[in-house]
Design a protein around this nucleic acid. Structure first.
Lengths: 429, 429
DNA sequence: GTCTATATATCGATAGAC
DNA sequence: GTCTATCGATATATAGAC
């Protein structure tokens, strides 16, 4: 009876603490959908069916709800690390089996703990109090050690650069742990894990051209041209101009998230008063729109080029990866801003909606490319239907590889060729 | 043009910070009238004529307003201590002139800073945050040193007990600093100071009986009898009974004030749950009523006895002082509770109102006694009209002398005879 | 400097399940 | 009879927008 399986929910289950659990669960769902700061106590109370003030019988504060959710996740990760680490010691099979095993486990955890992960991954640490922040310190190191153990026996092909193994671990760790966030659909967790591993270990392309051909491809040239036209980064100069305000807002939004950043924060960061700010921009959303439209149009031009250019599928995918690697660096702030944004009910009316629309459109293009190239015997391996693989490819290429130690753009791109295109375990080429 | 000097205040003075000052001033007035916790931001905003949220343009919190007011008082006291200390060094005249000078100065400060003093004296330190609490640490020691200097040359009459000088300083300090709080009327500050000094230094009674006569008077016997009937103090026993709840509430109300104490605080202190509490008492006010009615009836019986008994005026006043000295000890908590209470708009509807009504009635009795005895050549000196002297006598006898070091009830009563009855400077007798 | 709207939180009191 | 969960009112405070 410890876990009341949903056999018979009974008429009105009067289990003590039942309502408290319900509040935590409902709140977690709302946090996951809309983000912490965009979810109000009134939202939670409405969803539970009580008045806002009544929530305080169960929790002393909104923050406490989040902290409890995070603590639970923390413990689950620790437990999983211990468990999988022990299992690895006796697991039969080679490195590939070990990797697939850990991927399965972590992905399952991710899907199980989607709400908590959203809280962890998307909420800006700077808005939180000390208590919140310390709860946000995830037990990631324990998991990373597990990945180390799982991949230790892996001998990279001769052609791989020496450090690629580190990037592989980095990718596996982030892709599996955040699987539930990156892949919004209702896919089965083991299916997700399989695709991640297939993509990284086996690669997408059956007969991949060599580096020289890829580097010299027409689509690659077009990609470089498109990226060269990305506007220069506007650094706030303290002039208080409209551009300054937008540039300052870009930093602040990336730091705390759009909804948690106040226009007073922006005004202060830009060194202007509220009156001045409102003479230069018409609203907070106006600023966001400007930031995101610049971001979207830059990425859109480059990606439409590589996804629709007539070259080979392999060359297109390679150029796609290059644009992503550079885009993730050039638009790091923008990437954070949209990451913080809620995919739920709120926020999504304005500029965020347009942005996500555009990314969906581009995803469709990627899927078309896969569909065209994945016919039996075609240049692209059939890992799963394009509509399922597409998001994974995008996610693999969009990881924040710059966070991994000494990985510059060229090395990151080389890693993506090595894994995403050719497969990390694939024959050297 | 950097600082628009206030050359032309124009029709509506647009002085920067003007509104902020107004808010502070208005808030101070409301705090003084109703107490800090009973004054809401909405009250303040209404009084200023703006919306509650707009107050936060001027102050970051309600607390900040109070802290600023307290800080200003603190600085005023420091400045006054420095100034009067220096003036004492060159002041001609004897100890009496020195005392009267300092009393004048401090009383004037008290009247000037009534709002801040109310905040200091009446708000319970336990409800406040650390910041509030530290602002509440008044610069009293500096003032006490001044009183020491002023009274240093004073040679007590031979008959005075050795330590009475300390109690005299204690009384002077508290009476003058809190003059504006104790004497609610519109009396002139120098008039107040004069009465305080007259009372303490010259005394009320022209020809005072000696100790033996006073101790053996009929009214004194009646007073002792009445006090013997005061109910025993009920200590909370942890039984959760109604008496326990009331006893616990008495402590809590005294600690924090009635309005700042929540019913949950009371329940916790009494060791019962809310459900139980509400089966034993009908409301928070119900508890207060019980506490205060017991207090009032006890004091009332004893005081009506001494104020209306047929003995001499001197004996009555002496017995009155004795009842006050013991009452202040026996009902220390009750005394604190009503001290915290607002004399303003709120609170005053319920039990507090009844309590203050009763004290007013008793004050009338005291005044009658004075009127009867203060005819020219009568036994009581004519310091001022009875309606003015009455409150001062009450205040002198009601000081928390138990806070002064080693002063027990007998010694305190002896001090009141020595000062209030006979005059501290009066001929020995 | 102010408004409007709304957020989080507290508190007195009670209904209703055990 | 006791206690949990809840309500209704209202407090302090924040935020976007002039």
């Amino acid at each position: 009876m410890t876990r009341s399986s949903r056999t018979v929910p009974a008429a009105t289950p009067p289990v003590p603490g039942h309502r408290t659990d319900e509040v935590r669960r409902v709140a977690g769902q709302l946090f996951a959908d809309s983000g912490y700061s965009a979810t109000t106590m009134t939202d939670i109370a409405d969803a539970v069916g009580i008045l806002p003030g009544s929530l305080y019988h169960h929790f002393t504060s909104k923050e406490e709800i989040a902290v409890e959710i995070l603590t639970e996740l923390d413990q689950e990760i620790s437990a999983l690390a211990t468990r999988t680490s022990a299992a690895l010691a006796t697991l039969p099979g080679g490195p590939e089996e070990r990797i697939r095993y850990v991927a399965q486990e972590v992905t399952a955890l991710s899907v199980r703990s989607r709400a908590a992960l959203r809280l962890y991954a998307y909420e800006a640490p700077t808005v939180a109090t000390e208590r919140f922040r310390s709860a946000l310190k995830l037990q990631a190191p324990a998991l990373e050690k597990v990945w180390k153990r799982a991949t230790d026996g892996l001998v990279p092909p001769a052609a791989a650069a020496p450090g690629d193994l580190g990037l592989l671990r980095f990718a596996l760790h982030h892709l599996t742990l955040n699987a539930a966030l990156n892949i919004p659909g209702r896919q089965d967790s083991s299916e997700i894990a399989r695709m991640i591993c297939d993509l990284l270990l086996d690669g997408l392309v059956t007969h991949c051209p060599d580096d020289r051909d890829l580097d010299g491809s027409e689509v690659m040239r077009a990609a470089r041209e498109a990226m060269a036209e990305w506007p220069a980064l506007h650094e706030p100069a303290g002039s208080g101009s409209r551009d300054d305000i937008v540039a300052a807002a870009r930093i602040e939004f990336a730091r705390r998230g759009y909804s948690a950043t106040t226009i007073r924060d922006v005004a202060e960061a830009a060194g202007v008063r509220m009156g001045t700010l409102y003479r230069r921009v018409s609203s907070k959303e106006d600023i966001l729109r400007e930031i995101l439209s610049n971001y979207t149009s830059s990425m859109d031009r480059a990606l439409r080029t590589v996804l629709t250019a007539g070259d080979s599928a392999a060359a297109s995918l390679d150029a796609f990866a290059l644009v992503f690697v550079h885009g993730k660096r050039r638009f790091r702030q923008e990437s954070d801003i949209v990451k913080f944004s809620a995919r739920g009910r709120n926020d999504m009316s304005g500029p965020f909606h347009e942005y996500f629309d555009q990314t969906q459109n581009r995803l469709r293009l990627l899927e078309e490319l896969l569909r065209d190239a994945a016919s039996p015997g075609g240049p692209v391996r059939q890992i799963a239907p394009p509509s399922q693989v597409g998001p994974h490819i995008r996610t693999v290429a969009w990881l924040p590889y710059q966070d991994f130690g000494r990985a510059g753009a060229p090395r990151t791109h080389a890693f993506l060729r090595r894994s995403l295109l050719r497969g990390f375990l694939g024959a050297a080429s």
